[in-house]
Structure formats: C-alpha cells, structure tokens
Design a protein around this nucleic acid. Structure first.
Lengths: 234, 234
DNA sequence: ACAAACAACTTGTATATACAAGATGGTAAA
DNA sequence: TTTACCATCTTGTATATACAAGTTGTTTGT
C-alpha cells in the first residue's frame, strides 16, 4: 500500500494533468486537503511541499498554493569534461602541456576571477588529443589564493579540471559558447585551416570559497559537437 | 533570527566543508541531532531531509545518514527562446517568414522525428532579427500528426517555438551545438561573409505523445553567444 | 558451528497541537 | 473618503508522540 501523502500527490497531479486545474489555479489549502483525505494537516502539507519542490505547484505564505506555470523553455545542455568525453567514445585521450606559469591578470581575467588587475594568477595551456587529432585547446587561469599548488602539477594523468574538482569542490559554473574563426596560432595548434570555424566555450567555476578558475576551451568545429543532452523535467 | 532547522543544516554543511566529515562519513542520527540542538526529532529530521534533497547527504532506512559523494561534473547550460532572449536585452525582435510548406522527410528528418522516410512533414524557415540585424536562421521540421495545424499559422506574433509549446507541452528536448562555416546561401541570409563562423544548434523536442519537431538554429558567430547560465546547485 | 530469535538502533510515516507570520477583506473610527 | 484596526484565512516553524520498517550485532538454543 502506498503512503498516504503519495495518494494526495497523485490526486493533485491528476487534477492538473486532466485539465481540471489550469495554470495559476488555486489548489485546496492544507486544512481542506486534510479534511478531504481524512488525514492530518502535516500529511497534506507534505504532499504540497513535495510538489512545490518538483515545480508542480507554487505557494506563498498567507495567499495559498497554486498550480505552477508549465516550464516551457529553460532547457539545459550538458557540458562535460573533454577527457571523459573522449574516453566514452572509446578513443584514446592524450594531453600535451604547452605552458604552465604565473602571469599577471589582465582586466578580463581579473574580473572573471574576482581579483585585482595585475595580481598573480596561474596560467596553463594544454592541447587535448582524441587519438592523434587535437580536439581542444585549453587556456586556463586559476586563482592561486584558492589553489596555491596549481603550478606544481604535471597534468600527465589528470586534467586541470579533474585536479581542480578534487581540490576545491565546484559548486557552480558559468558557460558561454561562441563560434569563432581560427587565427594563425589557433589554426596551427588545432591543425586546421586558418579561418576555419571553431567552437569556443568560456567557463568560469566557483567553489564555496570563491571563483576558482576561468577557462577558454576551443574546439575545431569540424571535429567537435557540443553536448546533446536531455532537458526540462519528466 | 534564522529558523532552527537552518542552523542545523548550516552546522552539518560546515562540518563537511571544513573537512571534519569526509565522503561517506556517517552523520549523527536524527535523535542525536535533536538532543544536540535541543530540538524535536522532526526538526532535526527536516534539516537532514533537505540536505538529502540537495544531494549533500544520502540516507538509508535502518543504516543511517551519510555524507554524499561530491557531484563533480554534470554542468548545465541554458538554451533559450531567441525571441525572449532578444527582448530581454531590451532590443526589438522581428521575424521574417521565408518558407512554410509540406515537404517529404529525408533520412535525417525521418529519424529525428521518428517517422518513415518520404512521409509529409511541415517545414518552416524563418529569419529572426535583433533590431535590424539577422541573429538566427531557423529551419524547422514539424511532425504533422501531432501538430496538424502547423502550416496554417502565420508566425507574425508568435514564434514557432512559442506556438508548439502551447499546442503540445514539451516534456523533453535534445540539443547539439556545433561551429560551422557559412556557405553562400547562409552568408547571404545572415548578412555575413562567406566562410564566417556560425553557431548552429540542432534541437529536437518531445511532448508526451511523441517527437514534435526538429530544428536547426543557425547564428552568426560574430553576433551571438550562446547561453551563459548557472549550474549544479547552490 | 550454525541458525533462529531478539534487542537496539536507524529512518519512514502519520497524527495532534501550538504559535508565528503574511495576506485579505471587512468594519469601525477619523 | 480615507485610515486604522481586526478577524480570518493562508502557509511556516516547531514540538511531542506513536508505530512501522529496515539494518546490525548479540544472544540463545539446537
């Protein structure tokens, strides 16, 4: 036998799905539901609370509980660790460490990392290979106050992303994706033609203690498709 | 003054963040927490339950409650309706309907929509403008069995995406993003140079009854950045 | 040595109750 | 008419209690 609060949830969802309760419709109060289902208010409350967490209902103190708007847009796309991605395709992943040094933060980096311009930040530049072909050029700026040992890493076994995830658990990230044309340097490194389209992902990651790193991940457009992942809710 | 269950949550999170409790560490039971914080078991329980929902803890009946594994990757990027996006920037959004007709599904479209090759599908082609500049060329194939009136629309006020969302509430979507070079036709329509990099999003959307539509959304790389949205959880 | 039973602990569900706090509408006073 | 107050409804927080049900280790009986 299912728990009582589940019965109530199902009843509420049924009303919405069958169209009896449109968006913004006011649903019965906790006390009404308790009377209706012959249960205590706390049990009715649990049903409502869980549906609020699921985004089915919205509620506000003093006013009542209402059917939520259908979440229409707001789709999500999965962005992954390139090494995992390559390995998941059954291919070999390799990295080549190009640079690993201290640099002074320019304006863009300073803003992204939330530090002062000119301060020291860790910089790494890596080329990721899928089998023998370059698939990603990774330029990364790291907040050395939060990750002081970043420059002592070798990045032979683990990617910077893997190392950082381990050091300072990431709590949030921000991505932007753009299409750019390869300039001379980029074309040479990615082994593509000058002017060829590239997919660039700009990623900022936070941990609880602050902004950890700021990375530019550049992929040859011809060899890389981003993401493809599911969305919305059930 | 903060609520009591919040104090308990903060205390628990603090232990984890400060490294006192590693992954899989067993946290105090509901009764122990209740004694420790001089509150009822249900209040301690609420703190634990909410942290379970947030993925900070895991618990199992009879055994106890434990610190969860850190959720490492799995970041998400927001993909939006272009019209909303433009309006949100405070700019004017306009559309130009280029084509709206029945076509026979080729192999790619048939697979994407889950129908037979050669079957009739709705096809629309629209150009979206931000102020006076093209920002998106939308090519869309629609499953006419699910949305029979698609071709009777005018798409003057509402975008195809808005119309479809209204007709058949979307339950899921799948996206892929790639960088491509503009060919002659694309360059002309988007008013960019031939060979210029473009960001292309391939989107499939489902409703409960099946695959609704398959769209190719192509943006000039110079005028468009995708998404930029937050991730993981707080 | 083995298995069954049990005790002790855990989380899960449910009830009854109390008061706090936000929202709303009506009523009475200015 | 406008303002102030109040009753009443809502959700939010908290407590005390009870029993169900899963897990684990110990004890007991064979």
């Amino acid at each position: 036998m299912a728990a009582k609060f589940i019965d109530i949830k199902q009843h509420l969802v049924a009303q919405i799905e069958q169209g009896h309760w449109p968006e913004h419709h006011r649903v019965p109060s906790e006390n009404r539901l308790a009377a209706q289902f012959n249960c205590s208010r706390m049990t009715a409350r649990r049903a409502l609370t869980e549906l609020v967490e699921q985004g089915v209902l919205v509620r506000s103190q003093g006013r009542g509980t209402f059917v939520a708007q259908l979440k229409s847009q707001g789709s999500m796309l999965n962005i992954r660790n390139i090494a995992d991605e390559v390995r998941e395709r059954g291919h070999q992943h390799q990295m080549e460490l190009l640079r690993l040094e201290v640099v002074a933060a320019n304006t863009e980096v300073a803003i992204a990392l939330g530090i002062k311009e000119g301060e020291s930040v860790g910089f790494s530049s890596l080329l990721h290979f899928e089998e023998a072909l370059p698939v990603q050029l990774e330029h990364r700026y790291v907040n050395l106050q939060l990750v002081p040992d970043y420059l002592q890493q070798t990045f032979e076994r683990h990617t910077p992303h893997e190392y950082l995830s381990q050091q300072a658990p990431l709590t949030e990230a921000h991505h932007e994706v753009e299409a750019i044309a390869a300039d001379d340097a980029l074309a040479a490194q990615l082994q593509i033609a000058q002017g060829a389209p590239c997919l660039r992902i700009v990623r900022r990651t936070w941990s609880r203690s602050g902004t950890v790193s700021f990375a530019r991940l550049t992929h040859p457009g011809s060899r890389y498709r981003l993401g493809g992942h599911l969305i919305m809710e059930k």
